[in-house]
Design a protein around this nucleic acid. Structure first.
Lengths: 211, 211
DNA sequence: TAGATTGTTAATCGATTAACAATC
DNA sequence: TAGATTGTTAATCGATTAACAATC
């Protein structure tokens, strides 16, 4: 397992896979050229070819990439060989939306437990996912072998939650709280800050209008 | 209004502002040094100083940056001088979560209208935001002078929605649909692909564990 | 074969970082 | 003043892109 894989390549592979699955399922196409996939993904053809090189998949100069094989290769690269368990912390509006969205979507990447401070939520089931009290977290994470977590708690609680997750063995986090989490270098954090992103969209909307 | 402002600088400024507001409001601190702000934001001190240069704010070598002034400067740079109207398209779970989250948060950046295909939603009010039918979109956007939009519709509808938004004068979009939107160069798109981000977190969780 | 595409290296580009004189 | 920090330039770094021989 190689750590120096570019962050962006991993993100693009995830996008390629979805685009290719569409081509395969809906349009029944069997092969793509790098420039076709590139156009769909909004990247350059050279970038697609470099990404293929990174995952070690080869196409044919005549026919391009065999979609079915390529989807398989991306899966072998991106996905865990067996179930990778995910936990979600903070069952508010956003947390519930995410639980609903992911329910039964990827067999090998499943949200197996949700946690919340509110004792009334413990014991309930939301979109097939069981909700636990916050105190049960270390025990449940260990029992279910959770390595990845989604943080949807308010900003003020996020660092405490992150600390607890790290000490419970979680190594990858998707953080929706608008704070910079302090974690050891051995832990990966992907930030999704909706406020920042909206402010960016608003800022550049004005830039573009003015120019 | 300058178009060559780095994308990432804008994102960092948004984060700085929130960190500084905290320092000011909760800890009553008046000044920060670049390395302090950098530590909180998870960036380098040089980066903070360069960002200050970009927005044209100067600190003092002795005392650092005056937080209140700096927050003001960031506001002048980032925010619209008057109300900047935002629309949200797609009132599903995620859309509702975002409406709730942003309600009354930033006075100058407000979600003024929501749209959905479901005719039952038209006319309802969710977290102070009125919901309209999809057909009313062009008219409402123009009337309310909307320049920025949040797309929370399913992937299959996203491109059509984007086209409609562009033709109604929207110049900045925050896109949650897992597709690459085709828009003119004059329109800015910020993508938030939750699936891709979770797959990245899961991938690197495995990398880190294995190493 | 001829022609388009692939795999891969070298060149380019832009963002980050290091460095340091100017400043308080 | 002495010392730490700022503003700003130059060097570094890494990712993207261009280019082209190898391939089908």
């Amino acid at each position: 397992m190689n750590v120096q894989i570019p962050d962006k390549t991993v993100g693009r592979l995830s996008l390629y896979r979805r685009l290719l699955s569409n081509l395969l399922g809906i349009e029944k196409v069997k092969f793509v050229f790098s420039h076709q996939l590139a156009k769909d993904a909004g990247v350059t053809a050279a970038q697609v070819r470099r990404d293929m090189m990174i995952i070690g998949y080869s196409g044919s100069p005549k026919r391009g990439y065999a979609i079915e094989e390529l989807v398989e290769s991306i899966g072998q690269f991106l996905d865990a060989p067996d179930l990778q368990a995910v936990a979600l912390i903070g069952v508010g509006n956003l947390g519930r939306a995410i639980l609903t969205y992911f329910a039964g979507r990827r067999p090998n990447l499943r949200i197996v437990a949700a946690f919340d401070n509110d004792p009334n939520k413990a014991g309930t089931v939301i979109s097939e996912c069981r909700c636990y009290a916050m105190q049960e977290m270390p025990e449940v994470l260990e029992k279910k072998n959770v390595t990845t977590a989604i943080i949807t708690v308010p900003a003020g609680q996020a660092q405490d939650v992150a600390d607890l997750l790290v000490s419970s063995g979680v190594r990858g986090m998707l953080n929706f709280a608008p704070v910079n989490l302090r974690v050891p270098a051995s832990v990966y954090v992907e930030d999704m800050d909706i406020t920042t992103s909206l402010e960016k969209a608003a800022f550049f909307a004005r830039c573009r209008t003015a120019s």
